[in-house]
Design a protein around this nucleic acid. Sequence first.
RNA 1: GUCCCGUUCGUCUAGAGGCCUAGGACACCAGCCUUUCACGUUGGUAACACGGGUUCGAAUCCCGUACGGGACGCCA
Length: 471
Amino acid sequence: MTVRTRFAPSPTGLLHIGGARTALFNYLFARHHGGQFLLRIEDTDRARSTAAATQVILEGLAWLDLQPDEPAVYQSAREARHVEVAHALLDQGRAYRCYCTPEELTAMRETAIKEGRPPRYDGRWRDRDPAEAPAGVKPSIRLKVPRGGVTEVDDLVQGMVRVADAELDDMIILRSDNTPTYLHAVVVDDHDMAITHVIRGDDHLTNTFRQVQIYRAMGWDLPRFAHIPLIHGADGAKLSKRHGAVSVLEFEREGFLPEALCNYLLRLGWGHGDAEILSRDEAISLFDLDGVGRAASRMDYAKLTHLNGFWLRQADDARLARDVARRLADEPGLVLDETTEARIATLMPGLKERAKTLLELAASAAFLARRLPFAITDKAALQLTPEARAMLANLAPHLAATDFSAAAVDAALRAFAEATGRKLGQVAQPLRAALTGTTTSPPIDATLAALGREESLARIAAVTAATQDAA
RNA sequence: GUCCCGUUCGUCUAGAGGCCUAGGACACCAGCCUUUCACGUUGGUAACACGGGUUCGAAUCCCGUACGGGACGCCA
């Protein structure tokens, strides 16, 4: 039997970190077992589902490279089938029509809570003669849940979980407006899509017992279930649209790499010995449900950032250069032409070594896009003492005599430092300030080489000229 | 309120009765490296929620307590 998993988000909000991890686990599990990973958009709630939210989910999954193996299934398009199954249940006497009004149900719930009983439907239409149906009330269809037994679910993560059927009430499977409820649609769709493993957040664990009733009533085989613990916000509470949930696309904006987010998410709630850094391929070969923990976890940006730094250093230079150019394009005062992009690409090995996010990377590359005259930070200005400016003026001819390769420039710098009795740092720091307007950058030889002869000498001249003006 | 689930360093986790003087990672502190900043590297601080059992022996098994979370919708 081929393993088939699915990620089934509802397009009522955004794809947040919890949903992303659920999708990841489903994807990894399917791949690990050589099966398929599917996507189903649960848009049964027409009032709250939006096309925009669906789009965001699709974009988020694409960014994370968690593409489904088959076209996405839209639950709303399967309504006729859901109705069909509900009626089949009705015909078999496994479901019945309930003529309660929403008001009546609300009242029922409130009294129950007031009297300290669980707020559940009391089954008043379960065995009542439909002939007694009040005129003008459109009925909903409820599942007739067997009484008196115990339902067991052997969850792949949570282990054996039992709930007395008495805890379950006769839930609505078809609303009075003839639309299916989530509980019903999920079961029908999972069955029809031949899903073998339902991997989802453990907020669905209790729902499972209700869903099992539908499988049984229809005589369908049960899929295996795996309820993974939720990711909590910093305060320990569930992540939701209204609570600390951030769209995965927000992570992109903040300069995180999809491979880093996936690596981080994988390690949140799943472990395999001391493995920390995992590529997609390694994740696929190592991932299984027995490595998933049972306790909820919290998001830790520091660790995500660290992993991002690692994956950034692994990333392809051209890819990073493109991203940096894109991010810098919006900034005022910068020139993003071919020359700049060539400089960014050239210096990328040195730049990416020093950045943890693409935002930092772009910021550190910004000096390459500046054109004279540009501002010098206060800290950098401190380096440019009159003495240092004079030193740079003396240094310039030596640099000009080289071919401006990093090696040649490095040799010239060292020779100059030795000849003038200075430590390399005493030469490099003022030079860095003149070249970048800041106090940090990749190694000075690489920086010089990336900027090129003309620009480098111009930038040096700009600060040495200032000396002469002052003098 | 009822039912369900959980609890190992600050955080993510390893741990499936003796290998645990509880390991790793992030963060933090100190040192080394060094051309700034990073990276890297060496070392350090830091945890089995609590109480009872079971056992020669428990982080690991059982029970209880506390705390946390989830579910109880004609939402998904």
